[in-house]
Nucleic acid binder design. Structure first.
Lengths: 155, 155
DNA sequence: CAAAACTATTACGTTTACGTTAATGTTATC
DNA sequence: GATAACATTAACGTAAACGTAATAGTTTTG
């Protein structure tokens, strides 16, 4: 269990940002000390790092991230409930249907995100190619001029 | 030549954003009408689209984008000057050196950006793989449950 | 056990990237 | 040539994502 400053160092966020994310409902520390100090687990840190990824890689706003996080929680919750009941007896129709609809909803939410990510990657690869072309031209020009410079100065 | 509203539609920016970017020194329309209306060329539109790419793909702030744009302009400027003088006579040492240093500076600026882009792409591909895994699990589970549902309802 | 170091909450402040009027001038249209 | 329909600048407003005190309580350390 880590307290806030350690987590701030691990995640490269500020303590303020951590409290802010908690205020928005993105991540809460798994515990508190008697005196009220936030205590984070490794899993908490993992989730924070995941949030940072979504922010930096998907370019999602904190509000959008919150939606995703909440959907994930809803899913986990339902799955726990499902697993608990599935062990002992068969589900009846309505319960099965509810679970199927949940999975469908998750799928419908994740698929466009996946596609968005994919096209973004493709465009970034194009941009990378542009960078590489430009850099290649610059480097070859620079070596060319360096040679010329040596010629002028009789090296 | 397009006026602002047409450019706004082409670039999916608002007119306000276009004026704001101009105010920051990111892009200026190539011309104005007698009465002061902004007139953009195709090249202007291209540059705006490029700016949007840097914003969305690199996640750069407008201030950072401004720096890149300015460096690019400085480079173009020097290259024009260079080409004009290179045509007629040989450059002497100092001029060559200045040009070489400019190319070096460009290279030093672009290389970390390229690397940043590359590692970002790699991490996004990991994230994409995660998405795909998750989706695959969800879909297979959903079809499994759908079959089960059919069984319960004797279809 | 007292000082030093850390943390909590509250609340106001700041920066970025525009949105939104308002007042006025310009082009296009009928 | 009037009147929409669009444009300009100027200025104030705003949402997101924190920063920065201020005040007060908590842990740690010598």
């Amino acid at each position: 269990m880590y307290k806030i400053d350690e987590v701030a160092q691990k995640t490269k966020l500020t303590k303020r940002a951590l409290r802010y994310y908690e205020e928005l409902g993105l991540v809460s520390p798994s515990g508190r000390t008697e005196g009220g100090y936030r205590m984070y687990t490794d899993a908490d840190v993992e989730q924070i790092l995941h949030i940072i990824d979504m922010r930096d890689l998907l370019g999602a706003s904190l509000a959008e991230i919150k939606e995703m996080v909440e959907l994930g929680r809803l899913y986990e919750e339902q799955r726990e409930f499902y697993n608990k009941h599935y062990k002992n007896r068969d589900l009846d129709g309505p319960e099965l249907l509810e679970r199927i609809e949940m999975l469908q909803k998750l799928e419908d939410t994740l698929t466009p995100q996946r596609d968005f990510l994919q096209t973004k990657i493709a465009r970034m690869q194009e941009l990378l190619a542009d960078f590489d072309n430009k850099l290649e031209r610059i480097v070859s020009k620079r070596t060319e001029l360096t040679e010329e410079f040596k010629g002028v100065n009789n090296c």
